[in-house]
Amino acid sequence: MQLIGMLDSPYVRRVAVALIAAKSPFEHRPISLFRHIDEFAKINPLLKAPTLVTDDGTVLIDSTLILDYLLATYPAMTALTPKEPGERPRALRFAGLALAVMEKAVQRHYERALRPAEKLDQPWVDRIIGQLQSGLQALDRELPQTGWITGPLGLADIAVVCAFGFVAGTVGDVVDVARYANLAAFSARAEALPAFRAAPAEDGVTAPVGL
């Protein structure tokens, strides 16, 4: 099984950290969508990261669908999901907020990185920032101040931390992350764990197969 993509993508990192936390074997190939476009296109012509190549050669895309496949295929992954059915909506609530934050942060990042300044649509940019801030505010307000979302560290926690790490690392100059002290403290607790340290949000780093 191969995970394709760079760990500075919150979506790729989300899958990598989950695999490492579950001690599920995989090969990480840090292929860039921009610097290695021809190499990436040979694996997935849609140029979507993360891409997962299963043991039978099936190519999967979208971090949520990849995690769904992994949960159905590798029993160890189920330890990252709520033990009680009643806790599932809470976990999904936080995962949804985290994914929305990722989406808006990625949009803002690419607007700045790829679109010429004279062609920016400022109302659209303002809308993105507003949505991003709303997501961060909700996470900051609702996250527990100790422990994790539904007990042991799980997929929802991983999504939240990967989202915040991406925001801080790429758009922290336009979004004041210091305003979200509870979210920052939550993320700091997670970032100190071995699974997160093994898959830092850095360009070109190769994640290990497990811990």
Rank of each mutant, 00 (worst) to 15 (best):
D55V: 11
D55P: 07
G57H: 06
G57T: 01
T58Q: 15
T58A: 06
T58D: 03
V59C: 13
V59K: 05
V59Q: 12
V59F: 11
V59M: 15
L60R: 04
L60D: 03
I61Q: 09
I61G: 12
D62E: 15
D62F: 09
T64R: 08
L67H: 02
L67K: 06
L67S: 08
D68K: 12
D68C: 12
D68E: 13
L70G: 15
L70C: 14
L70T: 08
L71E: 00
L71K: 09
A72S: 11
Y74R: 13
Y74G: 06
P75F: 06
P75L: 13
M77D: 06
T78K: 05
A79W: 09
L80C: 05
L80H: 01
T81Y: 11
T81R: 12
T81G: 08
P82R: 00
P82I: 02
P82A: 10
K83V: 15
K83H: 10
K83E: 15
E84W: 01
E84N: 04
P85R: 09
G86A: 10
G86P: 04
G86H: 06
E87I: 01
R88Q: 14
R88I: 10
P89T: 07
R90F: 14
A91N: 03
L92V: 10
L92H: 09
R93M: 11
F94S: 15
F94Q: 07
F94N: 11
F94Y: 08
A95W: 10
A95E: 07
G96R: 04
G96F: 06
G96K: 03
L97T: 03
L97H: 05
A98T: 12
A98H: 02
L99R: 14
A100P: 03
A100G: 09
A100T: 06
V101Q: 03
M102P: 07
M102F: 07
M102T: 03
M102L: 10
K104F: 03
A105N: 13
A105E: 09
A105D: 08
A105I: 01
V106G: 04
V106I: 15
V106F: 04
V106W: 00
R108W: 04
R108N: 10
Y110S: 00
Y110L: 12
R112C: 07
A113C: 04
L114T: 01
P116A: 01
P116N: 00
P116Y: 02
A117S: 04
A117K: 05
A117M: 07
A117E: 10
E118G: 01
E118N: 00
K119L: 13
K119H: 04
K119A: 04
L120Q: 06
L120G: 08
L120W: 15
D121P: 08
Q122N: 09
Q122Y: 04
P123N: 06
P123L: 14
W124A: 14
W124N: 03
W124V: 05
V125L: 11
D126T: 07
R127V: 08
R127C: 15
G130H: 09
G130L: 11
G130Y: 03
Q131P: 00
L132W: 00
Q133C: 11
Q133F: 02
S134C: 02
S134R: 14
G135Q: 07
G135N: 08
Q137R: 13
Q137S: 14
A138T: 00
L139F: 07
D140C: 15
D140F: 09
R141F: 14
R141G: 05
L143S: 08
P144R: 05
Q145S: 07
T146Y: 00
T146Q: 05
T146E: 08
